[in-house]
Simulated scan of single mutants.
Amino acid sequence: MDQNDLGTDIEKVLVTEAQIKHRLMELASDIDRDYHDREILLVGVLKGAVMVMADLARALHNPVRMDWMAVSSYGSGTKSSGVVRILKDLDTDLKDQHVLIVEDIIDSGLTLSWLLSNLRSRGAASVEVCTLLRKPEALKVDLDVRYVGFDVPNEFVIGYGLDYAEKYRNVPFVATLAPHVYR
């Protein structure tokens, strides 16, 4: 899928496919360096982090294990609902594990704050975060995020795993939608 396939749905491309690939390689290098002597468990947050997790894992040189968790604070709208629900829990026991949460985007930070607390309470040796995107202007809680791909404006974005009403996840770049799409 490319921008031509989307017709008038895209208002503006914020991060290109090439920029994403380059930045994920840089993040993988940092993670390899920081975890060179420890095995890490990548915990992907479904559904949005699928693309980020797959490409990040392939870029890492150290062996990793992977698991998935689905939590939701979004409906079909463009704003967080603030209510966190576990839709799919981890299959892995986190006791003494070095966990790296892989996120697509940090918006208000409320869901991630809850997730960090939840995973730390399970006895993990460490819990850190890697996110492709962060919206600094939208943050409602103070979060220590170790690996950040890009800071983006406080606008609703789609692509590279991010959706609007379950569409646009397979767009290989990050963009804003034209207003006519979600009115």
Rank of each mutant, 00 (worst) to 15 (best):
D2V: 08
D5M: 08
L6Q: 13
G7I: 10
G7V: 04
I10V: 15
I10L: 15
V13F: 06
T16G: 14
A18L: 09
K21M: 08
K21N: 15
H22I: 01
L24Q: 01
A28Y: 03
D32R: 10
R33Q: 07
D34A: 13
E39Q: 15
E39D: 15
L42Y: 01
K47T: 07
V50T: 03
M51H: 14
V52N: 08
V52E: 01
V52W: 08
A54W: 03
D55T: 11
L56F: 05
R58Q: 13
A59D: 01
L60G: 11
H61G: 13
N62K: 15
P63K: 07
P63Q: 07
P63R: 08
V64D: 02
R65C: 07
D67F: 00
W68E: 08
A70R: 15
S76I: 05
G77E: 12
T78P: 01
K79P: 02
S80W: 03
S80E: 07
S81N: 15
S81L: 14
V83C: 02
R85H: 07
K88H: 09
D89N: 15
L90T: 03
L90P: 06
D91V: 14
D93K: 09
Q97S: 12
H98M: 13
L100P: 12
L100M: 11
V102A: 06
V102N: 08
I106Q: 05
G109D: 02
G109K: 10
L110N: 15
L110E: 06
T111D: 02
L112H: 11
S113Y: 10
S113D: 15
N118M: 14
N118S: 09
L119V: 13
R120V: 05
R120H: 14
R120A: 12
L132V: 04
L133Q: 07
L133F: 13
K135D: 11
K135M: 13
P136M: 04
P136Q: 02
P136I: 03
E137Y: 03
A138T: 08
V141F: 00
D144S: 11
V145I: 14
R146P: 01
V152S: 08
F156K: 12
V157L: 11
V157M: 12
I158D: 01
I158C: 07
G159K: 12
Y160L: 00
E166C: 00
R169I: 04
F173Y: 10
V174H: 08
V174W: 04
A175W: 02
A178T: 05
A178R: 02
P179K: 13
V181Q: 07
Y182G: 00
